[in-house]
């Protein structure tokens, strides 16, 4: 069977300094996959490179058997929340409606049925009561739910979320996890960058453990072995020791 997602020999650097190197993995369709690793492991970089948002030095990304360029509109991406202008004159429903843009293409406007669909997506994340609010008026968790609704509105096959649980309330976190599991059961593939090891077993079925290089990927119970975790996080520990001995 064709893999939903397959990355081969991926290398990414910023101005000649390698951030992630030699990454290869593949997953079947219908999986909820966590990307975990210590700070500076290159988790977000890996995700951005897979999406073609930053240039890669080497490697291929194949999605549903096709190169990224041909399937971009089939991928919904929820970036980290901190680099948006929350004062932008746009309300919650119109934000979700943006999810219909990729498939509308140039010169087509969203119509009534698109607005209805956006409203349905908003209901799914429990935010329909806020549809007329300006997005900056929402709490962090509510904003994240709206951006999940926008991703749902895109009717994508694959979902990429970058640190969706940072700075949000526990209720929103539970809602988001529940919906991610629902869409996984509908056969979608979901990749989530997540820094918290403790919830990994509960949230994800499969993991990518990363620290610049790929430590391990596969089923959660296979990846979360003590020696592999030590290997992923050891870089930071030895770095701290090094700091300590220097006068």
């Amino acid at each position: 069977m064709e893999k939903a997602l397959s990355v081969k020999d991926l290398h990414v650097s910023y101005y000649g300094k390698e951030v992630v190197r030699n990454i290869s993995f593949s997953f079947d369709t219908g999986k909820l996959i966590g990307v975990i690793g210590p700070n500076g492991a290159g988790k977000s970089t890996l995700m951005k490179a897979m999406l073609g948002l930053i240039p890669k030095d080497k490697g291929t990304v194949i999605i549903n058997g096709r190169p990224l360029k041909e399937v971009r509109k089939q991928i919904a991406y929820v970036p980290q929340r901190n680099n948006l202008d929350w004062d932008f004159p746009i309300n919650v429903l119109d934000t979700v409606l943006l999810g219909t843009y990729p498939k509308l293409g140039f010169f087509h406007r969203p119509k009534k049925e698109h607005k209805q669909w956006a409203m349905e997506c908003l209901q799914r994340v429990g935010m329909e009561a806020y549809s007329k609010k300006q997005i900056g008026e929402l709490s962090g968790g509510q904003q994240q739910r709206v951006f999940l609704a926008r991703a749902l509105a895109q009717k994508a096959d694959m979902f990429f979320l970058d640190e969706p649980f940072v700075g949000i309330d526990i209720g929103s976190e539970e809602t988001i996890v529940r919906i991610l599991k629902e869409i996984r059961d509908q056969g979608k593939t979901i990749l989530v960058v997540h820094h918290d090891l403790s919830k990994a077993r509960e949230y994800f079925q499969e993991l990518i453990l990363l620290n610049q290089e790929l430590i391990e990927f596969g089923k959660v119970e296979d990846v979360l072995q003590p020696e592999q975790i030590a290997k992923a996080y050891q870089g930071q520990l030895s770095f701290l020791k090094e700091l300590a001995v220097k006068p």
Binding site: G52, L98, Y101, F106
Partner: peptide
């Protein structure tokens, strides 16, 4: 008028715009 959608999304969320091409 013709490129309203594209001007809107690249102003508000350029990352999403770039992600879908």
């Amino acid at each position: 008028f013709a490129f309203y959608k594209e001007l809107l999304i690249t102003s508000f969320d350029p990352t999403m715009a770039q992600a879908y091409g």
